[in-house]
Design a protein around this nucleic acid. Structure first.
Length: 842
DNA sequence: CTCTCCCT
């Protein structure tokens, strides 16, 4: 059988032969995974060295290797082999080695020159996993340094080639795919509809309009279960075999969903994106796509991840629809309109942009790179999550203060698990708890034993179920409500780590809850939760954030927990998985890791500077007492931090005088920019607290004591004497008016100052009063005798000439005791009544 | 309104 990719093989071979990197852009079905490595095997430039081909999934790696070997008519482990976690088939003569992503990173770390390798092929690069992005960056680094004869071939779905080609300085070779046509039906959905209802309706419609089996895409397991329950009741599903398919279902159930129905019934499979690439389901001719996908997002501010339900990307939707056209022409119902289609993102967001970067940060440090800018990336690791990751690694002792890897860090990097868990394994070994640490790490890292169960269970139940599985097999696990398949996977991971730590065999012992908490605290020193007073399920995390146990958790009321799984979404984090923690045991077993520190710091809850001597484990404060003597400079520094956190608005501006001073200076700054008046905006004052406010802080350590500050004098002290003189002259606090009185000017942060004055006081005055050496006319608020505003103007002469007459007419009757002369120009300006004027003899 | 998929 000839495959479309064969047409471009000569060009591909030639380009690589010229010593170039190459990007092969080909849609699914082109045959790139099977044909390309074999076509290159005999190339002389390889000089007998091997080809490494990277696959994004274990299933795919094993499958690709098997097909390649079959094409050569050999068993696996001869010319073609594979290496994935837990399994490898590699022989002496192996020239094509198919590996999964983590394996390649590991190999590069052990041998940066990739000795004996002539070509690295990245298959399905468009999936943009964290590991494949990292592996490409490391390969490029190796190529540019030690191995200029190493070649790279990146294979990717359509429309992605140019970007990668630019990064790796490569030629793009394009191939056609093989795919039966799929007819697309875009059907706008009820925007309020829940995913399960929308997709169930789509399935019912497809059942009526099409023949053949149906594959429907939903965002997650919960929606799949609800859609399943709903469709079971529906008459359209009578006689139809209804299946669910998602990663956490037991293997047998997944298998049944993939196979043709034993009784030959028509099949409907409700699936997560697991069916998008990893699994091929027999007999599908119709796809129903709800158009969602769920993705984790790491929030560097909290250090936590949460799941988000997003619209599918165009690439994913394409892939999903394609599932209907593997056997024959098919149909895809897309439950969104053409407009929505145009707004879809072209590709899934690269994992490097949204993931926890702690593992990547450790890999980079182990590679000897402190700044990711030293490597070439399609998308560099974003700064904030990377900084957060480095901070975590520093806390775990993997990095030193200078950001270099420590001996412990190197040991951690060599263990195939998350740095948090690697730290727990190594520290657990020192405590003589290595085997238990392996179990706990596996329970954290592998599939949830109790997924889908109603009750929120504490961590201890997992360890108990694992022990039961070891002693009594699958039945033992089932009796405790655990999934035996998942137990097997956990045991397999734990066994791998035990062997890496050179532990002989697992000694099963009693599960000690407190030791478990202790070990978990070694992995999550920053996720310790203390029970809030007056309740039994609300906790305070060491970060200061609130957290809440899942309803009905058996851990309710425990004073101290280690939160293993925290969902960071929303106001309060949700503690999904936790173990109780005993401070006494920490002190007893981890005494060496306790840090005693004297802390003088602003406390947001106390609204004051607190000075305490604290005994800490990670972020957990085990003991705390007040410091007998405190350095005044430290208090001042902490107070400044506190004021910065509260904002300058928290200072006592209420009196008004200080605000007026700020407004006067701000006005002069705006009117007379050449004079260099200081910037006293909130932002500027906030930024320079240390300069202008610090000298006045001695004796102040609480928020309420800020009321003592005389902000007017403090700000005035910022001006030198000539400036103070000029301020009085150019922006006076008061203005004299013709009546002889002095009235207060009201300055504003922007605009002209306001002079509020009874209009009788201004008789005879033609010129509007001015400030700033005559540059700015004040805004007059002309008042009635009852001090009600009659007119607002910046043009007094015009007021006398026009509006004054009407004002007179209107107000004369109401205020007969006050003067309302026909000619305001010649009348005597006064604040007094007629009677007083007469008494004064006029 | 129960946590997607994948990997050392």
């Amino acid at each position: 059988m000839t495959l479309p990719v064969e047409a471009v093989l000569p060009e591909l071979v030639q380009r690589l032969g010229e010593g170039r990197n190459v990007v092969l852009e080909a849609p699914p079905g082109a045959g790139k995974t099977t044909r390309v490595p074999l076509a290159l095997l005999a190339e002389t430039w390889l000089r007998g060295r091997s080809i490494l081909m990277l696959e994004p999934r274990r299933l795919a790696a094993r499958g690709a290797a098997a097909r390649l070997a079959a094409l050569l008519g050999e068993p696996l482990g001869q010319t073609v082999g594979f290496r994935i976690r837990f399994e490898s088939r590699i022989g002496r003569q192996t020239r094509i080695e198919v590996v999964t992503e983590g394996i390649l990173t590991r190999r590069l770390q052990q041998d940066p020159t990739l000795e004996g390798v002539g070509l690295v092929i990245f298959d399905e690069f468009h999936e943009r996993h964290l590991h494949s992005d990292l592996a490409l960056a490391l390969c490029l680094d190796a190529q540019s340094g030690l191995r200029d004869d190493l070649r790279l071939l990146v294979m990717s779905a359509t429309l992605y080639g140019a970007l990668v080609a630019q990064l790796i300085d490569a030629e793009v070779v394009r191939s056609e795919g093989r795919q039966y046509p799929v007819t697309l039906h875009h059907t706008p959905r009820d925007p309020e509809g829940r995913p399960e209802a929308v997709v169930a309706a789509g399935v019912v419609r497809a059942l009526g309009e099409q023949r053949g089996d149906i594959l429907a895409f939903l965002p997650g397991g919960a929606e799949i279960r609800r859609a399943h329950d709903h469709l079971l009741q529906h008459p359209a599903c009578a006689g139809v075999a209804l299946h669910m398919l998602y990663g956490d279902l037991p293997f047998e159930v997944q298998q049944r969903a993939i196979e043709p129905d034993a009784e030959g019934r028509r099949k409907v499979v409700l699936a997560t994106p697991i069916a998008e690439t990893s699994l091929t389901i027999e007999g599908i001719t119709t796809v129903v796509d709800g158009g969602w996908q769920r993705a984790p997002r790491f929030d560097p501010r909290t250090g936590l991840s949460h799941l988000e339900t997003l619209r599918v990307s165009r690439a994913s939707a394409e892939q999903r629809a394609g599932r209907a056209g593997r056997l024959q022409a098919g149909v895809a119902y897309r439950l969104w309109g053409e407009n929505t289609q145009r707004g879809l993102r072209p590709f899934n967001e690269p994992e490097i942009g949204v993931a926890d970067l702690a593992p990547l940060a450790l890999e980079l440090t182990a590679w000897g790179v402190s700044d990711p800018g030293q490597l070439r990336w399609l998308d560099p690791p974003p700064a904030a999550p990377l900084a957060q990751a480095r901070e975590l690694l520093l806390g775990l002792g993997a990095l030193d203060e200078g950001g270099r890897i420590t001996a412990v860090g190197r040991e951690m990097a060599e263990l195939p698990l998350h740095p948090r868990l690697a730290h727990m394994l190594l520290e657990g070994r020192r405590l003589g708890l290595a085997a238990t640490a392996c179990d706990i790490a596996a329970l954290v890292a592998e599939r949830d034993l109790f997924r889908g169960s109603e009750r929120a269970r504490p961590f201890g139940d997992r360890l108990e179920a694992l022990t039961a599985f070891r002693q009594q097999g699958r039945e033992g696990a089932r009796r405790l409500g655990a999934d035996p398949h998942a137990c097997g996977q956990v045991e397999r991971a734990a066994r791998q780590w035990r062997s890496l730590l050179r532990l002989e065999r697992h000694r099963s012992s009693e599960v000690d809850e407190e030791e478990m908490g202790l070990l978990l605290a070694l992995a999550y020193p920053d996720r310790i939760a203390r029970l809030r007073e007056g309740g039994d399920e609300r906790y305070l995390l060491s970060s200061g954030r609130g957290a809440r146990l899942l309803p009905h958790s058996p851990l309710r009321g425990r004073p101290l927990l280690v939160a293993v799984d925290l969902d960071g979404q929303g106001e309060e984090a949700t503690i999904r998985l936790a173990a109780p923690l005993s401070p006494a045991l920490i002190r007893e077993r981890l005494g060496g890791q306790l840090v005693v520190r004297e802390r003088v710091a602003w406390d947001g809850r106390e609204q004051a500077v607190v000075a305490r001597r604290e005994e800490c484990f990670g972020a957990l404060v085990l003991a705390s007492k007040p410091l007998p003597q405190v350095d005044a400079a430290q208090v001042q520094q902490a107070m400044l931090t506190g004021i910065a956190a509260l904002g300058v608005a928290a200072l006592p501006w209420e009196a008004g005088e200080a605000q007026q001073l700020r407004a006067r200076v701000a006005s002069l700054r705006a009117w007379l920019p050449e004079q260099g008046w200081p910037d006293w905006s909130d932002a500027a004052l906030q930024a320079s607290l240390a300069e202008w406010l610090a000298p006045f802080l001695p004796g102040i350590s609480r928020r309420e004591q800020l009321a003592r500050l005389d902000l007017t004098s403090i700000l005035l002290a910022q001006l030198d004497y000539p400036q103070q003189r000029r301020l009085e002259e150019l922006a006076p606090t008061h203005l004299a008016v013709p009546s002889g009185a002095r009235h207060r000017l009201e300055y504003r942060l922007e605009g002209v100052p306001v002079l509020a004055v009874k209009l009788q006081e201004l008789f005879g005055l033609a010129e509007t009063p001015r400030v700033a050496a005559g540059r700015v006319a004040v805004l007059l608020h002309l008042l009635s005798p009852a001090r009600r505003p009659v007119q607002v103007t910046q043009d007094l002469a015009n007021f006398w000439a026009t509006t004054y007459k009407e004002v007179c007419k209107e107000l004369k009757g109401r205020y007969p005791k006050h003067p309302w002369p026909d000619d305001p120009w010649s009348a005597r300006p006064t604040a007094a009544t007629m009677r007083r004027l007469r008494q004064e003899g006029r």
